[in-house]
Nucleic acid binder design. Structure first.
Lengths: 288, 288
DNA sequence: GTCTTCATGTGCGAAAATGCATGGATGGAT
DNA sequence: ATCCATCCATGCATTTTCGCACATGAAGAC
């Protein structure tokens, strides 16, 4: 039994269509179709029902997918360990962090790192998604969370507070009349007003909800309302000043996390060192 | 990373030479060389040192082999489970048992089974080696042992005794004069005289040792001495009769064992049924 | 010393796998 | 009702992979 055919079956079970599986495997979809046919011939058993809207796996294909998944895990473990054993400071390195963390705090780290190690091909994945470090979607992640997560190694970089920010216009209005109606712009995931608002400001309402933090910041910059955000963001972003509506409040820590297999790699360690020193030097930015 | 290349690395680490690995994989050895070169190119790292007497794996190759072994286990598990899920009574079925058990007791089972299920391509591995049922070297094994073994399912088929056998000539000589010198021919693995010999025969010596049971039987048939063997064998083999030198003694049971994944297969079950009924019908052959 | 055996590299032609383009079917949005 | 996106099957040209034959080098048997 060809192992690559097993992998192809897994991809097709996962994606449900030849095109999807082909894209995932980096081959033309006709190749997927042919490999499936070959596997069916080898096993003497149909693996998929050809439906008008895609391939539907039979029980046999599901069984294959189940075990091919184990094989895939072994492959990932292998790749992680090979990465972790690397000693040279060249070649690819993949880092992930949230868009805002990168844009507003980490750029000096990237600058310093690529200057120090020009042979490393650094790739940045600026996304809010939690990439799977076990599957090598990234080598190292900077994350805001309460703990590094299962089966990952982590280093606590920073403690941080959140506070409320708005345009200078709002700041002036609020200071002149604490009873004025204060508009909030909030993130979708937090449906209510932030907890811990000061009792000195009795009139508040949620004016807009956004599902995107960048858009939210834009709204605040445009004067649409007050926004709760991490201290470092409010201090960094142009056009916003802190307002006393929400007193500073401790928030989740910032960590650098990686898979223990990958952790010892020379490149990963080098990046960590630059990162840690930059964080130490800028501790004050994050707390009230 | 191509999974089949990982498998090729594993094979080469295991066998140490292109030719050996090629034979194990069922491909030409030049193909092995090329796949290794390709894998080295993909990983950007040498995997083997080319020595005059073969390929010597680097640490990276050993790491690959380690994980490819996990992948192989997953493959074996898959194949076992697919086999176990088979419901049709056709196609290949592999049985293993010792040479002597097959030649002297199991032939009626084979006859009956192939008559009842002519579409099954039955393959017999008549060997004394303990084949690895987890690796699908066989689907079912008839074994003489005290237990079915780790992670295998088993069914106790028969209890059996051993006793001493020799030519009629020897039998007569012994009965005429219990004090005559009695020669033994013994199996290599049991260096001493069998335990439990009757005190009625004081003069005994080991005359020959053999490393092969068939040769041993030939020696006994040629009158070279007395041989301890399972009851059913002594009774079945021409030219030998039981002699009272070694009173019948209980020996290890006969089991049919298989991997639990494969056990439910229709073919495996069908064979088991024929086997069990033949054993039940011939229970008496095995005990004194 | 020579011969045999077992090991690896290389070049060439056959075979297999792959990508691309075309054609056809289905279901949902407009 | 129509258009469009998405899916699949097939045929053809190209690329890649593979097996075979031949050459070579080292180590052990006689």
């Amino acid at each position: 039994m060809a192992w690559d055919d097993l992998r192809t079956v897994l991809a097709l079970v996962r994606h449900g269509s030849l095109a999807g599986a082909g894209a995932a495997l980096g081959v033309n979809y006709t190749t997927v179709a042919r490999r499936i046919r070959r596997a069916e011939g080898t096993l003497g058993e149909p693996l998929f029902e050809r439906l008008s809207d895609g391939y539907s796996p039979t029980q046999a294909a599901q069984l294959i997918a189940e075990h091919a998944q184990d094989m895939e895990q072994a492959e990932h473990a292998l790749m992680r360990r090979m990465k972790g054993a690397e000693t040279q400071l060249s070649g690819p390195l993949v880092i992930t962090a949230s868009q805002l963390l990168i844009a507003n705090f980490l750029t000096p780290v990237l600058d310093q790192f690529t200057s120090a190690y020009p042979a490393v091909e650094l790739r940045i994945l600026a996304t809010n998604e939690m990439l799977d470090l076990s599957r090598r979607e990234a080598d190292l992640a900077v994350r805001i969370s309460r703990s590094p997560g299962d089966e990952l190694t982590g280093l606590r970089l920073l403690s941080q507070d959140t506070a409320s920010f708005a345009t200078a216009d709002w700041a002036q209005r609020i200071s002149q009349d604490p009873n004025t109606m204060i508009d909030w712009v909030v993130y979708d995931a937090t449906p209510d007003l932030p907890k811990g608002v000061s009792p000195d400001y009795p009139n508040m309402q949620v004016r807009f909800r956004f599902d995107d933090m960048v858009a939210l910041i834009g709204a605040a910059q445009a004067g649409l309302g007050v926004l709760r955000m991490p201290m470092f963001l409010g201090r960094t972003i142009a056009g916003l000043v802190q307002v006393p509506v929400l007193p500073p409040r401790s928030y989740a820590d910032i960590w650098v996390v990686g898979h223990p297999d990958v952790w010892p790699s020379a490149k990963v360690r080098a990046f960590r060192e630059v990162l840690v020193s930059h964080c130490k030097a800028n501790k004050g930015l994050f707390v009230a």
